[in-house]
Write a protein that binds this DNA or RNA. Structure first.
Length: 430
RNA sequence: GGUGGGGUUCCCGAGUGGCCAAAGGGAACAGACUGUAAAUCUGUCGGCGAUGCCUUCGGAGGUUCGAAUCCUCCCCCCACCA
């Protein structure tokens, strides 16, 4: 079996790691327990968390045991790492609620259960901590001189905002988490984003000092798009893994719109397709890359939402943007339905229902765009139409007060389009 | 506790009585070009069934024909001093 470190390295997951040689050996010695912490700051994870999630999934696939740690306790404190502003502190109730959603989403990627992956919540051991004993046992191993030099505090120490004492403690608590998991589950590897380096190393050192054990750390690169933006942000905000917040259709669209230059890298990071198949697509150019994007979008959507939703999103895309031939030899391991590239199933295109009577009365086009949410305000709808970006059933709307009525209904539907690629269907009901 | 500097539209940031729905930049949106890509150029970018009306410049009052701009009180942030 391949060493997971090689797998992760090859796929682009590793930015940095502590003691490489020994870490390799650690994995050769048998199943390894490793952990990653997730902030329960929101009730859903977003694509920004996909790197850690996928890395845990790879761990599990290679026979190791991943632990997903929900930061129910540290979430009450707030991690200042790499943040310019102090976090809003969370209440315990909110954290608990968010932790539930987190587990549900992680379950799509990782299998939890006996001898499998585990989910722990650090509130369980952090909340009951007693201040004085904690300071005496743990606190004394930390040098303030060193801490204030840590990169993770630098930004805040230099800024006008400053760093509050509660946040200053974050590193110590996270180090303690690592120690706790080391003691209770023999966990000797922590992974995390590159902004977590300081926190991870703090844990590694704490374990060495208190237990005389070597522990390890791996950090992931910050994934940015080739155009330089932080990945996973769109106009509407974060791209969520929760389908109530980001529909499978929108999720699929997010991936299809990947920058040319990112396709190969993203396939490696966000799908499980074998690496040797990816080398072929390095040769693809221009429009041919869209095949690879289609498969990337399909696979990513399948992982997050399941095959059925992925197929639907794929069909909807074919229906709206045109079906595309998907040659067998490109990424052959993908189970995307290649031959049956149907373009008649647009059921996952965003839609709203509207009573027939409302249409019979007729209403100006800009109202329709406003009511479907394609534009945030009436003014924006007027602007869109004035600038020539609004379409009804494929025909450009010429003026914002153009009346829409029964004559625009096809098959009990009206298809609206805003700009080049935002579609919305109106279902007419009696 | 004292002194000084601040809080402006999504973000940064100009504006110190009318010419201010508020410069400039970023983000975003639309058009052209395209491949549901990038880059580039152009336009838009508070709300409203709209050549006008309404709401906005930390909050509440006040002065004035007129306030983001002046006055009073309050809230919050920062720096230095204690």
């Amino acid at each position: 079996m391949a060493n997971v470190i090689d797998v992760l390295k090859e796929r682009g997951f590793i930015e940095d790691m502590t003691h490489d040689e020994e870490l390799y050996g650690h994995f050769d010695d048998g199943p390894v327990t490793c952990y990653i912490g997730f902030d329960p700051t929101a009730s859903s994870l977003h694509v920004g968390s996909l790197i850690p999630i996928m890395s845990l999934a790879h761990m599990q696939r290679e026979g190791h045991r991943p632990i997903a740690l929900v930061g129910g306790g540290t979430g009450l404190v707030g991690d200042p790492s790499g943040k310019t502003e102090m976090r809003q502190l969370l209440t315990e109730a909110v954290v608990e609620e968010n932790a539930k959603g987190l587990k549900r989403q992680l379950s799509r990627f990782i299998e939890f259960g006996d001898k499998k992956a585990m989910l722990v919540n650090n509130a369980d051991w952090l909340v009951p901590l007693k201040y004085i004993p904690f300071l005496r046992d743990i606190g004394r191993h930390f040098s303030v001189n060193r801490m204030i030099k840590a990169e993770s505090y630098r930004m805040r120490l230099d800024s006008d905002e400053g760093l509050s004492f509660i946040e200053f403690n974050y590193m110590v608590l996270q180090a303690y988490d690592f120690l706790e998991l080391h003691d209770s589950h023999g966990c000797r590897l922590q992974m995390g984003g590159s902004d977590q380096w300081g926190n991870i190393v703090a844990g590694v050192e704490l374990i060495r000092r208190m237990r005389q054990h070597t522990a390890f750390g791996i950090t992931f690169p910050l994934i940015t798009t080739s155009s330089g933006a932080k990945m996973g942000k769109t106009a509407k905000g974060a791209v969520w893994l929760d389908k109530e917040r980001t529909s499978p259709y929108d999720y699929y669209q997010f991936w299809v719109n990947t920058d040319d230059r990112d396709v190969e890298r993203f396939l490696a990071l966000f799908t499980f397709l074998p690496m040797d198949e990816m080398r072929n697509i390095g040769g693809l150019e221009g429009a041919d890359l869209n095949v690879a994007k289609t498969i990337l979008a399909f696979e990513a959507t399948r992982l997050a939402h399941g095959r059925e939703d992925a197929v639907q999103a794929f069909h909807a895309a074919s229906s709206m943007f045109g079906a595309r031939a998907l040659p067998e030899h490109i990424l052959p391991s993908s189970r995307i339905p290649r031959a049956a590239a149907r373009d008649d199933d647009d059921s996952s295109v965003p839609q709203t229902e509207m009573p027939l009577s409302a249409i019979q009365e007729g209403l100006p086009a800009f109202k329709l765009f406003l009511e479907t949410g394609l534009t945030p305000s009436g003014g924006a709808a007027r602007r869109l139409i004035t600038q020539g970006g609004a379409y009804v059933n494929g025909n450009r709307v010429e003026s914002y007060d153009e009346m829409i009525n029964e004559s625009n209904i096809n098959d009990m539907e009206i298809l609206l389009r805003a700009g080049k690629k935002r579609y919305h269907k109106i279902k007419i009901i009696n």
